[in-house]
Write a protein that binds this DNA or RNA. Structure first.
Lengths: 120, 120
DNA sequence: GTCAATCGTTTCGGTTCCGTATTATTTCGG
DNA sequence: CCGAAATAATACGGAACCGAAACGATTGAC
């Protein structure tokens, strides 16, 4: 079953989820992320590894420092981790964390909940 | 028909739409918005007017300067407009613009397109 | 062994955003 | 009237982010 969604439903869904994210920022800062940071986080947790700075920059069409800085911030929040690649020590491999996985899972549940409560 | 969406589908949808928004930033800066700004924009265009600074601050649970600054930014981008309320001149009424309506409509279409292309 | 290429990080100057506190304007109760 | 309350905007110091450029470490071609 392909997901059927009309424009007003789509916008309503986006609106309600975004409102929740904005509101809950404060208690749990996991989703006080910029659009870029969120795109990076979801790429890391939804696409098959390995993920590198260069690969993420290319996929998102942003410069490498943007990725580095986003990883700094999300690393501080324990949402992702970095590790040198032993095979090629120029590379940095981005790794998932328990906290990051939980945050992504929570986002998924939040979207699902709002989707099921959407007006028809 | 309530919208049925499983967690992985929901996250995939969010991921793909966010990726598009991040990528297209540059040519059209309409969606180079923070989560807060997007929440404000969608509230203005999806909920019945009138909208005031105070009302938006209360709904989003943020301080008023956050709303004022967001309106400054989005006003510069022509996504919203401000007008003094003649009935009570302390109030500022936030108005929709053609450009803002088009941007919101485009976001809706983007979400719908990605939803229909979702893996089952 | 050397040197160009690659990779991630850091630096730089500038811009934007934040939260708190303060301000100017307007309304309203008495 | 006049002072209290309400509203939006502004001031301020600090933090985060940006793009471009420069940098150090590592690799690989020759």
């Amino acid at each position: 079953m392909p997901v059927e969604l009309r424009p007003l439903q789509a916008l309503t869904l986006w609106h309600r989820v975004t409102l929740d994210l904005v509101r809950e920022d404060g208690q749990d800062r996991a989703f006080d992320l910029s659009a870029r940071q969120l795109a990076i986080l979801l790429t890391i947790y939804l696409e098959p590894p390995p993920h590198t700075v260069r690969g993420l920059a290319s996929k998102l069409r942003v410069t490498k420092p943007v990725i580095t800085r986003a990883l700094d911030t999300m690393g501080r929040l324990d949402l992702v981790a970095r590790r040198r690649d032993d095979a090629d020590r120029r590379n940095v491999v981005i790794q998932r964390t328990v906290k990051g996985a939980l945050a992504v899972e929570r986002l998924g549940d939040l979207i699902v909940a709002h989707a099921s409560a959407l007006p028809r």
